[in-house]
Structures are given as structure tokens and as C-alpha cells.
């Protein structure tokens, strides 16, 4: 029934994407070239302009719209790379990663991996990490809401209950282990100042990104704090967190340090209250459409 409409949409999309189209037919994948002329022959001549030029409006708008989204989502990366190199990255990314979500909000999400895997950008690993930092902050900004587990709540816990206390990261939290000084670069760019020379670090820098009230934040954690925090993801008891802190001489020392970390996390709004309803049912996530 929809033979013509489906074929037309398939052709037009292929022309806009400017590439060989791939179609699924009952599990087998068929690739075939859709020549632009095939589509042009099915179009009615416009009032004054050339049909070809009118079709180009769609092809160009497709790329420029997505490039604008990348530019807006990764403004600091763009400032760091400069106009020409960022446009090069954006063009490559748009060809490699057509949007597969209804909401363009998530279009940029694969850019850090793209930069890390694609030459010439992969030669400068700080670029992917600057992108990762920038997108993590954007994610923290509009990630799911949850009641924060405050410092006051923490101090009201009786000593007997500490071991079984659930440590739940706030849904806005993102962890990044950076191998370069990407954070210093990002901070300089964000402040509109000259970024430092990029360099590989001797040991990874452990970054945590989260949302405090409505503001996205980022800071560095020590290896011990990061180990403890990672043990709490997605949700563990205080005892689990302490058990993961194997670099300490004994569990008493580890527990002492863990209490300090926990107080800091609670004060900063990095922890969420245990949602007993959600804990008892299936873990429910607000999935982006």
C-alpha cells in the first residue's frame, strides 16, 4: 500500500544523507545506491528556482542544523579547537553518527568517543576529554531529579545504622577519569583565558560532575575518594564502600576516611535519598525519547 510513499522517503533521506542507503529486509541488510537523479525526476519544477537547488536546501539545512547543535552543546570544545578544526570535527561526526533519537538533545552524545577514535583528533586525547567534560556538565544540568541526602540527614544517623546505610549517588552524578589536563584546559576556555599546554598526566585525574541545586559542578577527587565513590555506584551500603577502600591499612582507617568523604558528598549534594518505592520495584529510569 505504502510502496510509493516509503520509496520516496527512502530516496529523499538517502539524498539528504548523501550516501548509500541501507535497508533492513527481514533480518538481512541490503545496501544500494540511490542516485540523486532518481529523486529529481519525481519532483515538480519550482516556480522560479532550479529543482536541484531547491533539493540542496534540504541537504544543506540538515548539516547546518546539526552543526549548530554541536556548536551549542560543545561551545568550549569549539573555542579550544578553533572554527576550522571544530567544523571539520562536526562534519565528520555528522556523517558518522546520524541522529537516532527523536530529541536532538542527545545528538552530541557520541562526540567524545568519535574524537577519541578518529584521526586527526585521536592524536590529541585532550580534545575527547574536553568534550567529555562539557557533555557531562550538560547532562548534569537536566538529568533526573531526586531528593538529595543532606549533611543533616547524615549526622542524624545513629552509629548502629551506619554499616547498613545506603549510599546512593544523585542521578546527576557523572564520573570521568581523565588521562590529560583536560579539566585545566576546559576551565581556562570557560573563563575565556588562554588554555595551558596539553599534557598527558602520570596518573589519571578523577573527576566528578554533579548538579548542586540547579547548577552543574565539577571537581577533582583523590584516588581514595574516587575508589570509595565508585564503590557506591549505583547503590551500596556504607560497609560496601569501606570494604572497597583496600588501600587503607585497616578497615578502621578506611571507615574514618569514608565518613569524611560521605560528609563531603552529602554537603555538596552528590547523594540521593534511597527511594524505597523504587528500590522495591524494578529500577525505573526516565529514558530519553
Amino acid at each position: 500500500m505504502m510502496a510509493n510513499l516509503a520509496a520516496l522517503q527512502h530516496q529523499m533521506q538517502s539524498v539528504i544523507l548523501r550516501r548509500t542507503a541501507t535497508a533492513q529486509h527481514g533480518g538481512s541488510t541490503t545496501s544500494y545506491q540511490v542516485p540523486r537523479d532518481d529523486l529529481l525526476s519525481q519532483l515538480r519544477p519550482p516556480a522560479h528556482a532550479q529543482t536541484d537547488a531547491m533539493l540542496d536546501i534540504y541537504c544543506n539545512a540538515y548539516r547546518s542544523r546539526l552543526a549548530e547543535v554541536l556548536e551549542a552543546d560543545l561551545a568550549n570544545l569549539s573555542a579550544y579547537l578553533g572554527k576550522a578544526l571544530f567544523e571539520h570535527a562536526a562534519a565528520g561526526y555528522i556523517e558518522a553518527h546520524p541522529s537516532d533519537r527523536q530529541n536532538v538533545r542527545w545528538f552530541s552524545r557520541n562526540m567524545p568517543d568519535f574524537l577519541a577514535a578518529t584521526a586527526p583528533f585521536s592524536n590529541w586525547p585532550q580534545m575527547a576529554e574536553v568534550a567529555r567534560i562539557e557533555l557531562a556538565l550538560a547532562d548534569a544540568f537536566d538529568s533526573a531529579n531526586a531528593e538529595t541526602f543532606s549533611l543533616a540527614m547524615l549526622t542524624s544517623i545513629s552509629p548502629d545504622d551506619w554499616a547498613t546505610l545506603m549510599v546512593v549517588p544523585h542521578p546527576s552524578v557523572r564520573r570521568i577519569d581523565a588521562l590529560t589536563n583536560a579539566l585545566d584546559i576546559w576551565i581556562a576556555i570557560d573563563a575565556g583565558t588562554e588554555p595551558p599546554q596539553a599534557k598527558r598526566l602520570n596518573s589519571p585525574q578523577h573527576l566528578i560532575v554533579w548538579r548542586e541545586a540547579t547548577t552543574p559542578r565539577i571537581r577533582v577527587m583523590s584516588i581514595d575518594e574516587a575508589t570509595a565513590f565508585d564503590a557506591a555506584q549505583p547503590a551500596s551500603t556504607f560497609a560496601d564502600v569501606v570494604a572497597a577502600m583496600t588501600s587503607f591499612e585497616d578497615q578502621r582507617e578506611a571507615a574514618k576516611a569514608a565518613v569524611g568523604f560521605l560528609a563531603g558528598w552529602a554537603a555538596a549534594g552528590m547523594l540521593a535519598c534511597v527511594d524505597t518505592e523504587a528500590a522495591n520495584s524494578h529500577p525505573k529510569q526516565e529514558t530519553p525519547a
Binding site: 500500500m1 505504502m2 510509493n4 510513499l5 516509503a6 520516496l8 522517503q9 527512502h10 529523499m12 533521506q13 539528504i16 544523507l17 542507503a21 541501507t22 535497508a23 533492513q24 534540504y58 539545512a61 540538515y62 542544523r65 546539526l66 547543535v69 546520524p98 541522529s99 537516532d100 533519537r101 527523536q102 536532538v104 545528538f107
Partner: peptide, 23 residues
């Protein structure tokens, strides 16, 4: 806005046919 799992994030035109209307 797209087919085959791709979203072109554009408002693309349709043919004004009975086939399209039914669909």
C-alpha cells in the same frame, strides 16, 4: 523527519496523494 531509525531533524515534505492521506 526520517526513516530507517534515523532522525534528520527537519520537516520534510510529503506527496499529496491518497496513499499518503490514508497512511
Amino acid at each position: 523527519t526520517g526513516v530507517h531509525g534515523i532522525n534528520l531533524h527537519d520537516l520534510l515534505p510529503i506527496p499529496y496523494t491518497y496513499e499518503a492521506l490514508d497512511h
